[in-house]
Amino acid sequence: MRGMSLIVQVMTGLLAGILLLYGGYIILHGHLTPGGGFAGGVLVAAALILVSLAFGAVEQVERREYILSSIFESSGGLLFLGLAVAGYLAADYFFRNAGLFYIGRPLELVSGGIIPLANIAIGLKVGAGLFAIFLALGASRFVMKE
């Protein structure tokens, strides 16, 4: 059997999506509660790593995932930089927040201007980046050896 034992596989199947959902929750509520892009991104990466450890993967799939995650990582970085440059072009200030995007009312989900967007960018970068690190370290190869 590829991957880990049945117990791990079934529980992973139940929980991986919920872990991803919780990561998304943390990322999107980064401007309202503790946590944010980095913490949520780590959770997202944890979900991806959990699935790839539990079910194992063939070399080809891993390669494809690696390329995909590196693309996602770069686009997260570009998105973050784009937010900074948007402020720069609109109001002369890097990372300018006031007056550029909809600020909203405090403690609502859509509020805080560019901060939620920046959190999403960071979450994308961290999640994809950590998963890419995992794949590059080849940790799943050790599980598959038997």
Binding site: G13, L14, A16, G17, I18, L20, A47, V51, F55
Partner: peptide, 9 residues
């Protein structure tokens, strides 16, 4: 989440 991991349910 469902799109990525729902198939493992």
């Amino acid at each position: 989440a469902a799109g990525m991991f729902g198939g493992y349910l």
